[in-house]
C-alpha cells in the first residue's frame, strides 16, 4: 500500500471509528454528526472529480446537491400522501425506498448536468465559474417560487426512507449506509482517475492543446467528468435530505456551493480522501468553535485563508508531508 493509499484509508477509518466509538459511548448525536460529515464528504468527492481532476472550477455544484435532495423529498412526500409524482407522460408513483430513490436522484441530476455542463463548458476561466453560479441561482430562485413543494419554506417528509433489512432511523445504521456509499464513491473515483479516461482528463486540464492534437476532444471528456461529478453530488443530496427528513432551497444556495468547495480545499484538492478530512474538520470546528463563540465562522475564515495562503495542499497535504519526514 502506497503512502497516499495508507493516508486515505486512515482518514476514512478515523471517520468510521468516530461513529462506532460514539455509538459505544452512547452518544447518538455524535453518530448523526459523523453521518453528516460522511454525506458532505460524498458531495466533496463528487465535486473533486470535476474540480480537482478535471480542473473545472464549478461554483454551482449546490444545484446538483439540491436536485438530489428535492428528488428525494418529492418522492418521499408523494409516497406519504399516496399520490403519484406525475401522471404525464406516464404515471410515476412516489417511493419511500432508498434503493428506488437513489437511481432516480442520480439520473435527474445527471440530466441537469448534461444541460448545464454542455452550455457552461463553452466558456472557460472566470466565465465558467460565473456561468455555473448563474445556473445554480436560476434553479435556486425556481425552487423558492415552486409552491407545490414548499417554496421558500422547504419540504418536510418526517420519516426517513427505508432500506431493506435496516432500520434507517437508528443513527448507526444510517451512518453505515452513508459510509458505504462514501467508500464506493471514493473507490469509483480512484478507478476513474486511473483509467484511460481519467488520465486523458487530467492531461486536458494540464495541456489542452496537446490533448486536442492527439485526437481527443476535451469537451467530451470534460462533460463526461462533469456529469459523473454531478451524479455523485446528487446522491449526496439525496442522503442529506434523508438525514434531515427535509429539503429547502438553502441546499441550492451559492453558500452551499462554496461550502462543498471548502471541504475539498480544506482537505486537499485532487486527493481522494481530501473531502472526507475537509468535511470532518469542518463539522468538528462547527461543534467545537460554535460552543466557544457564536462568531466561529470568522475563525473558520481565518483558518481557510491560512490554508489557501500557506498550505495549498490542504490538511492531507500537510499530513502527507509530515509522514514523509518521519
Amino acid at each position: 500500500m502506497g503512502r497516499d493509499a495508507a493516508l486515505n484509508t486512515a482518514v476514512f477509518a478515523a471517520l468510521v471509528a468516530v461513529a462506532f466509538g460514539a455509538h459505544v459511548y452512547g452518544a447518538p448525536y455524535v453518530v448523526t454528526l459523523a453521518t453528516k460529515a460522511a454525506i458532505l464528504a460524498l458531495a466533496g468527492v463528487g465535486l473533486n472529480l470535476a474540480l480537482g481532476y478535471g480542473g473545472m472550477v464549478s461554483f454551482g455544484h449546490a444545484v446538483f446537491f439540491g436536485i438530489g435532495g428535492y428528488v428525494t423529498g418529492i418522492f418521499a412526500s408523494h409516497a406519504a400522501a399516496g399520490t403519484p409524482v406525475t401522471t404525464f407522460p406516464f404515471t410515476i408513483a412516489g417511493s419511500a425506498e432508498m434503493l428506488g430513490i437513489w437511481p432516480m436522484a442520480m439520473v435527474v441530476t445527471a440530466l441537469a448536468a448534461v444541460v448545464i455542463g454542455a452550455l457552461s463548458l463553452r466558456t472557460t476561466g472566470v466565465y465558467f465559474i460565473m456561468v455555473t453560479l448563474a445556473f445554480a441561482q436560476m434553479v435556486y430562485y425556481f425552487a423558492i417560487s415552486w409552491r407545490a413543494y414548499g417554496g421558500e419554506d422547504g419540504l418536510s417528509f418526517y420519516v426517513r426512507n427505508s432500506f431493506p433489512g435496516l432500520n434507517t432511523f437508528a443513527p448507526l445504521q444510517f451512518f453505515a449506509i452513508s459510509a458505504v456509499l462514501l467508500a464506493m464513491a471514493m473507490a469509483f473515483s480512484a478507478l476513474v482517475t486511473r483509467s484511460r479516461f481519467g488520465l486523458a482528463l487530467q492531461a486536458a486540464r494540464a495541456n489542452r492543446q496537446r490533448v486536442m492534437a492527439s485526437g481527443i476532444r476535451p469537451f467530451a471528456l470534460q462533460l463526461t467528468a462533469f456529469v459523473l461529478s454531478a451524479a455523485i453530488v446528487g446522491l449526496a443530496g439525496a442522503l442529506y435530505a434523508d438525514l434531515n427528513r427535509f429539503v429547502s432551497p438553502a441546499m441550492l444556495s451559492w453558500h452551499m456551493s462554496g461550502e462543498i468547495m471548502v471541504f475539498v480545499i480544506l482537505g486537499g484538492v485532487g486527493r481522494l480522501a481530501g473531502p472526507v478530512a475537509g468535511a470532518g474538520v469542518f463539522i468538528l470546528l462547527e461543534q467545537l468553535l460554535g460552543g466557544v463563540s457564536e462568531y466561529w465562522q470568522a475563525l473558520l475564515g481565518l483558518l481557510l485563508l491560512a490554508i489557501v495562503l500557506y498550505a495549498p495542499g490542504g490538511i492531507l497535504g500537510l499530513l502527507a508531508r509530515g509522514m514523509r519526514r518521519v
Binding site: 461554483f59 476561466g125 462554496g258 484538492v269 465562522q297 470568522a298 473558520l300 475564515g301 481557510l304 495549498p312
Partner: peptide, 28 residues
C-alpha cells in the same frame, strides 16, 4: 497581494474566507 500569481480557484476560496471574516467581524 499573495493571490495574484495563484489560480482562480484559490482566489475564490481565499476571498470567500475573507467574506466570513468580514461578516462575522461586523456582526461582532
Amino acid at each position: 497581494r499573495r493571490l495574484y500569481a495563484r489560480d482562480h480557484l484559490e482566489q475564490v476560496l481565499a476571498t470567500f474566507a475573507l467574506i466570513l471574516v468580514f461578516s462575522e467581524g461586523a456582526r461582532w
